[in-house]
Design a binder for these strands. Sequence first.
DNA 1: TTTTGAGTTGTTCGA
DNA 2: GTCGAACAACTCAAA
Length: 509
Amino acid sequence: MNAAGGLRQHRDTVGMASSASGSAPLIVWFRQDLRLNDNPALIAAAAAGRPVIALYILDTATRDWSMGSATRWWLHHSLAKLAAALRQQYDLQLTLRRGDPAALLPALMQETGATAIHWNRVYEPASIVRDTAIKAALQVRGSAVETHNAALLFEPWTVKTQAGGWFKVFTPFWRACLAQPAPVPQRAPKKLTPYAGALASDALEDWDLLPTKPDWAGGLRETWTPGEAGAAERLQDFIDKDLHRYANGRDRPDLNCTSRLSAHLHFGEIGPRQIWQAVQMAAERGDARIAQNVGKFLSELGWREFCHHLLFHFPTLPQQNFRDDFDAFPWNPNADHVKAWQTGHTGYPIVDAGMRQLWHSGWMHNRVRMIAASFLIKHLLQDWRVGEAWFWDTLVDANLANNAGGWQWVAGSGADAAPYFRIFNPIMQGEKFDPEGDYVRRWVPELAQLPNKYIHKPWTAPESVLKQAGLVLGQSYPLPLVDHATARKAALAAFAALRNDADQAVGDE
DNA sequence: TTTTGAGTTGTTCGA
DNA sequence: GTCGAACAACTCAAA
């Protein structure tokens, strides 16, 4: 069955607007909340007992950080799943429209006689600007607008220091969060009244969200199951198989025991409240190993929360150094080096494995993200925003807050950032966290025949070993793009220059 | 206001 | 191979 095909409605029909606002329809505007459970906008709309219109708008008017290629792929499938679920559960059509929400929403309300609209907030700068204006305009027209929180455990304006400011350090931030009452998810509405009129809807396929020539999405299809059901299954699988060893296992890309919920979370196919409750319940069921690991896992959810709160309070996070002394950092732009990094040809196996995993599957293990990001920034001295942009386009979980927060953290320009001297050694990291080389062998197959001893540093292998492994360095696999020790010294020198600049600036005053 | 303790994820060097 | 110290100085959060 092609769920998307069922969305077509060929007839433009003027809705039967009711004059009695008591039975006038209301709109649920889906955005980054593509689920039925724990969806406060949907729940509130259903509870009103009036006809419900379910709407998704492909926003072509907001230019800032428009979706990357991998997230467009995910969105297509997630919308198809949402449409199918709405139809199956409530006999409700998901109406698809493309354009400027500021124009489309009042038009749809006019068309249908809808007098109220619900949506769940997106806590990103461009969305806030857009939605604030839309809300004001709709209210001027006399419409009721209600917005809700589906995306975060705690509202960004509620987590404050004792002095009333915003946290810039994670640990006290998370302590303050944990002091709040535990967030509780709500179930999907049991029933709701679907809007009876026929509504014109775009066909999902016409949005061209999927790649065609070439179709590079094969690796994504074999790796992911977008949609609310896929998210729930992923969470359950994680709790059953991996939560009990999360604290240590999370650092092992070869073991693959992280939750892999990031993209589901980004699209709101599952919410943080649901995850929170599910792992707490698993811990309470009595498995001591799970109980020991839950705190660590929740703190990762805490980092997601922290990044979102940071972005809310510091909206320039994706573009500008959080610490402005980094504006003087002596980057060394080099298109060839960036290309080698992007395509997984740096000559450092753990970095290349990660970059190829990303290209193939739209995702990279967290530990390897740090190593690969550190390499781009500190070994190659490329601006963190170059890496941020590549991740934005290639990650299925590309999320403005997490991506910006992560890159600034690695660069050392962010909140609570890594100290300048923390420069990952890609060889040592590989040997420590991929000890058997399984991860490298999977993603860099040309190295598969190398013995473990050389898998993370092939250039040190004797000629006979290389020959045995069928490897010609510089041909079938690159030599290291830069020498680790040399690059490390250069990075330290660059950071030293930054400090000197800062001292100079103080001296100038 | 001042003081104090602390701050996700590391590496290198020398004993 | 293992271990502790050094790598800076600063900012943040709270007492």
